[in-house]
């Protein structure tokens, strides 16, 4: 059951330029959140629309999100300080599955790495072997590698320009992993071209694949249909906020 309440910021730090990690003391949300779910944050009085941000970690009563400053709303949020209060609705949405057999690969692209940390931890708690493949633009954009390293059995980092980890995107290392053994599932979040490449690779290797989609949202609870996307072979619409943000990759219409 989602809660809407005012919560206090207990920790806040910059992970990279315009990428902020923010932790709230939010017991009701932290204790019921599942990997892949998001919280809907009100960003100041003049902005009626909340901002959906994926949960990247929970620990006891605390909940952490990592967000990129993209517009006026996230800039407002980034200007808060530790001790300030923020109006949050959550946890919302349908998260990653948790009934897999075998090893799990989590794939994160850019800021999309954030929810995958929660997914990696959740899979680890279920005693899965977890391998992370993270892709970033450049060394300056690399985030969370220490945290993934502490949780995962294997970690591969890539950057487009080769300034950190392997040069290129996540496709080559993912392909290599899928060729070496049979995994139980691939879970991914990141830019749409990356998700599409991951989904197509998993389809070829016949590996279950779940991806987290991003769309501009209104209500966040499934009522307003603002974030609806064409799914299921183009036959019907699904709401990213309620039916997603995590979908079975087979359901997604990539040209929709």
């Amino acid at each position: 059951m989602p809660t809407q309440a005012i919560y206090t910021i207990s920790d806040m730090r910059n992970l990279a330029e315009d990428v902020i990690s923010m932790t709230f003391i939010a017991p009701e949300i932290a204790r019921s959140a599942a990997a892949g779910q998001f919280i809907h944050i009100k960003c100041g009085h003049s902005r009626p629309l909340r901002r959906p941000i994926s949960i990247s970690d929970v620990s006891g009563d605390k909940l952490t999100v990592i967000f990129e400053v993209r517009g006026a709303g996230t800039r407002w949020l980034a200007s808060r300080d530790i001790g300030r209060k923020v109006d949050i609705l959550g946890p919302l949405g349908h998260g990653f599955g948790d009934t897999f057999s075998g090893g799990i690969i989590v794939v994160g692209g850019g800021i999309g790495a954030a929810p995958m940390l929660f997914a990696a931890k959740a899979a680890k708690r279920k005693a899965h072997s977890v391998t992370a493949v993270l892709g970033f633009r450049s060394q300056a954009n690399v985030i969370l590698t220490d945290e993934f390293d502490a949780v995962c059995d294997g970690l591969v980092t890539t950057t487009d320009d080769g300034t950190a980890g392997l040069r290129g995107n996540v496709s080559a290392p993912l392909e290599e992993l899928l060729n070496t053994k049979k995994y139980g599932a691939v879970l991914a979040c990141g830019p749409k071209p990356m998700l599409r490449a991951v989904a197509e690779m998993c389809a070829i290797h016949k590996i279950h694949c779940e991806i987290s989609l991003e769309e501009r949202m209104g209500c966040g609870v499934g009522a307003c249909l603002v974030c609806a996307c064409l799914m299921h072979n183009g036959e019907r619409m699904s709401r990213v906020c309620k039916d997603g943000p995590v979908f079975d990759a087979k359901e997604v219409v990539w040209n929709g």
Partner: peptide, 18 residues
């Protein structure tokens, strides 16, 4: 309905094109 994006925030308001 219409293609996404279907929503845009404005000062104290929003536009929709669901």
């Amino acid at each position: 309905g219409n293609p996404a994006p279907r929503i845009a925030e404005t000062a104290m308001g929003m536009l929709n094109s669901v």
